[in-house]
Computed example of a mutant assay.
Amino acid sequence: MQSDPDSHVLPSETRIGRTALRVSDLDEMVEFYREVVGLSVLTRSETTAILGVEKTPLLVLERDEAALARDRSGAGLYHTAFRVPSRSALGDALGRIRDRWQLSGAADHDVSEALYLTDPEGSGVEIYRDFPREEWPIADGGRVRIGTYPLDLEPVEAAGTGELGVPAGTDIGHVHLEVTSLETFSDFYVDTLGFDVQTTVPDASFVSAGGYHHHIGANTWHHRTGTVEGRGLSWFEVVLPEAQTLETIRDQVAGSQFTVTKTDDGISIIGPDEIEIRFSVET
Score class of each variant (00 low, 15 high):
residue 188 F to G: 06
residue 39 L to V: 10
residue 184 T to R: 15
residue 24 S to W: 02
residue 74 G to T: 15
residue 60 V to A: 02
residue 156 V to W: 11
residue 110 D to V: 00
residue 276 E to N: 03
residue 196 D to I: 00
residue 209 A to N: 12
residue 2 Q to G: 14
residue 59 L to T: 10
residue 266 G to L: 03
residue 19 T to S: 13
residue 143 R to F: 02
residue 85 P to K: 03
residue 115 L to C: 10
residue 123 S to K: 04
residue 135 E to D: 12
residue 127 I to P: 05
residue 202 P to W: 09
residue 156 V to F: 12
residue 218 A to Q: 00
residue 151 L to G: 07
residue 159 A to T: 05
residue 75 A to G: 05
residue 103 L to E: 02
residue 249 I to L: 15
residue 199 T to K: 02
residue 272 P to S: 10
residue 115 L to N: 05
residue 15 R to Y: 08
residue 79 H to L: 12
residue 111 V to A: 03
residue 252 Q to I: 00
residue 51 L to P: 01
residue 113 E to S: 01
residue 72 R to H: 07
residue 139 A to D: 14
residue 99 D to C: 03
residue 113 E to L: 00
residue 211 G to Q: 02
residue 163 E to T: 05
residue 49 A to T: 05
residue 24 S to G: 15
residue 179 V to H: 07
residue 264 D to L: 13
residue 44 R to M: 05
residue 205 S to P: 00
residue 270 I to S: 09
residue 92 D to C: 14
residue 27 D to N: 10
residue 47 T to G: 09
residue 135 E to F: 10
residue 140 D to F: 03
residue 53 V to S: 07
residue 148 T to D: 04
residue 191 D to E: 15
residue 12 S to R: 14
residue 221 W to T: 11
residue 220 T to Y: 09
residue 93 A to G: 09
residue 76 G to D: 07
residue 60 V to W: 10
residue 243 A to D: 14
